[in-house]
Amino acid sequence: MNKKVVAVLALALAGAAVWWTQNRQDSSGTGEPIVQVAVPSSLSPMAEQGKAAFDANCASCHGPTGSGRDGLAPPLIHKIYEPSHHSDMAFTLAVRQGVRAHHWRFGNMAPVDGVSDTSIKAITSYIRELQRANGIQ
């Protein structure tokens, strides 16, 4: 191989390494909850439906109560996701289009296929009720 080809390959590998570290979560994470979440004693019927949909579509990354998972995904029960900063539509767009990492170093979130608009609305209701129970308005 000539020196130019080796240099281009080395540069490409270096670029890939930089991209990987900036766009992927830290694999040294423990998967443990990031924040403690107080769960209300009861949820509205819409939030109950949302909990079921959240458990099926979101909990594997964001934790069963939106507490986040170390090294995997951020907590949704956090001031960053309060309604005045991330509207309900932001949750819809995240599910439909994915999210480019911007607040946390977990990497990008891919779109989540197969979640209906009704389920997204219910999931958002569940998240909002958990947020209110934890002083996030």
Rank of each mutant, 00 (worst) to 15 (best):
residue 5 V to Y: 15
residue 8 V to C: 09
residue 9 L to P: 06
residue 10 A to N: 04
residue 11 L to I: 09
residue 11 L to R: 05
residue 15 G to R: 02
residue 15 G to N: 03
residue 15 G to T: 06
residue 17 A to F: 01
residue 19 W to F: 12
residue 20 W to Y: 15
residue 20 W to V: 11
residue 20 W to P: 02
residue 21 T to S: 02
residue 21 T to I: 13
residue 23 N to W: 13
residue 23 N to F: 13
residue 24 R to A: 12
residue 25 Q to K: 14
residue 25 Q to R: 13
residue 27 S to I: 15
residue 28 S to Q: 13
residue 28 S to W: 07
residue 29 G to M: 09
residue 31 G to T: 04
residue 32 E to I: 07
residue 33 P to G: 06
residue 33 P to I: 14
residue 33 P to K: 02
residue 34 I to E: 13
residue 37 V to Y: 03
residue 37 V to D: 06
residue 37 V to S: 05
residue 38 A to K: 13
residue 39 V to P: 13
residue 39 V to S: 10
residue 39 V to M: 07
residue 40 P to F: 05
residue 41 S to I: 11
residue 42 S to K: 12
residue 43 L to K: 06
residue 43 L to G: 05
residue 44 S to I: 06
residue 45 P to I: 08
residue 46 M to Y: 00
residue 47 A to R: 11
residue 49 Q to D: 11
residue 49 Q to N: 11
residue 52 A to P: 00
residue 52 A to Y: 07
residue 53 A to K: 07
residue 53 A to G: 02
residue 54 F to L: 01
residue 54 F to A: 03
residue 55 D to F: 07
residue 55 D to G: 09
residue 57 N to L: 08
residue 59 A to C: 06
residue 59 A to W: 02
residue 60 S to E: 09
residue 62 H to Q: 08
residue 64 P to A: 11
residue 64 P to Y: 09
residue 66 G to S: 07
residue 68 G to N: 03
residue 69 R to Y: 01
residue 69 R to S: 10
residue 71 G to K: 09
residue 72 L to S: 09
residue 73 A to G: 15
residue 74 P to I: 08
residue 74 P to K: 07
residue 76 L to N: 09
residue 79 K to V: 15
residue 84 S to A: 14
residue 84 S to R: 15
residue 86 H to E: 06
residue 86 H to W: 08
residue 87 S to W: 02
residue 89 M to N: 07
residue 90 A to F: 05
residue 90 A to S: 14
residue 91 F to A: 06
residue 93 L to S: 12
residue 94 A to F: 00
residue 95 V to D: 03
residue 96 R to P: 02
residue 97 Q to E: 07
residue 98 G to H: 10
residue 102 H to F: 10
residue 104 W to T: 12
residue 105 R to V: 00
residue 105 R to G: 04
residue 106 F to W: 08
residue 106 F to S: 03
residue 108 N to W: 04
residue 108 N to T: 01
residue 109 M to D: 12
residue 110 A to K: 13
residue 110 A to T: 12
residue 110 A to M: 13
residue 111 P to T: 10
residue 111 P to L: 05
residue 111 P to G: 05
residue 112 V to Q: 11
residue 115 V to K: 10
residue 117 D to E: 15
residue 118 T to C: 03
residue 118 T to Q: 14
residue 120 I to M: 15
residue 120 I to D: 10
residue 121 K to L: 08
residue 122 A to M: 04
residue 123 I to V: 13
residue 126 Y to K: 08
residue 126 Y to F: 15
residue 128 R to H: 01
residue 128 R to K: 05
residue 129 E to I: 01
residue 129 E to C: 11
residue 133 A to T: 03
residue 135 G to F: 04
residue 135 G to K: 04
